[in-house]
Design a protein around this nucleic acid. Structure first.
Lengths: 181, 181
DNA sequence: TCATCCATGTAAAAAGTTACATGATTTT
DNA sequence: AAAATCATGTAACTTTTTACATGGATGA
């Protein structure tokens, strides 16, 4: 479960509560997990049992008490090992639309153009949303020039992925127009 | 579960057994499910209960008997409805490496270059494998020019996704070299 | 003769999602 | 006054993955 490594990595920035983690992971889209409570609180418990994190309880009157988690030396070592030595997974894609297109066998040209347009609409929307998310995230995460550069490159990576998909859709549409009729 | 739609779509080509389905889905990478038996046999059972498919048992001496599944009219209608009317999902990406890069905070420039190289290696390998798969799949699936065109475009979509990732890696590396030192 | 293919499935574990539960504080 | 945020978690469900089980036929 690489999700627990994400928790570990975010905690390597600074100690925080499960709720703080949830917020960060949720707004950072490339951390792609739904950020649901279950995974975070269970993950923290598992990491604690493995000695990767410890927590301090901050009692507060009225409000529920906070559990502030801190990464341990062991956790930091394990995390750095993951970054440097783990097998780097190639990207994974789920493009349901390709299945729909591939199996659209006996549809006429108009129908195929229609589903391509639907897909274009869907990807455009997603790109818009992502652009807005990246813009908002802006500078509130970066700590130095190096990190600033890497985060902006990551942002670019995500946005161009959607842009490339849009270009591909246009290309397919043009190809159909030229040959299909 | 859109996986069952994939089953339905492949069955719309021609009647076949669960084992045949398994082989097709496994070698067609963009159908991205692991192609494990469980999903296919359970899926077929569920589709049968919904009246989307029927099966005929072909008894054979010695060998185990085959269950040949055929899509029903209802199944075909439902499938076409899915293609034309369902919400087209934008592509989903899982790039674990982006998390590793984003959280590589206090690594030195050499270490960052190293993990970028590792990722490059991994993506190159994947691209090579995909190229080979696409080449082999070749023409054994297409039935007419339209389908031939669409399948070649899908193939291009998959390969350029990996190629674009490689370009991005090069760009990041160059950027680090220029600014990072 | 050893491995792979054909052909069907079952069982169990792991991972992920959705909904529920509680209650104070802060913002609109 | 209502809605959103802070903060913790549990329960139930769905989906996915991995491993097991059987056994003849075919090919190297």
């Amino acid at each position: 479960m690489s999700f627990n490594y994400t928790i570990l990595g975010v905690l390597s920035w600074k100690p925080m509560t499960g709720y703080d983690l949830k917020k960060i992971i949720q707004k950072t889209t490339f951390m792609y997990w739904s950020g649901n409570n279950n995974q975070i609180y269970k993950g923290l418990l598992a990491l604690q049992n493995q000695g990767m994190v410890t927590n301090e309880i901050e009692h507060r009157e009225g409000s529920p008490s906070k559990k502030i988690y801190t990464i341990t030396k062991k956790g930091l070592l394990e995390f750095n090992k993951w970054i440097m030595e783990s097998v780097k997974e190639p990207p994974e894609f789920k493009k349901e639309f390709l299945i729909q297109l591939a199996l659209s066998g006996d549809l006429n040209t108009e129908s195929i153009m229609s589903i391509l347009s639907q897909y274009h609409e869907s990807v455009s929307m997603k790109l818009l949303m992502e652009t807005e998310i990246q813009r908002r995230q802006g500078l509130d995460v970066r700590r130095n020039k190096k990190e600033d550069y890497l985060w902006s490159m990551i942002s670019e990576n995500i946005l161009t992925t959607y842009e490339n998909e849009l270009l591909w859709i246009e290309k397919v549409k043009n190809g159909i127009e030229l040959k299909g009729r």
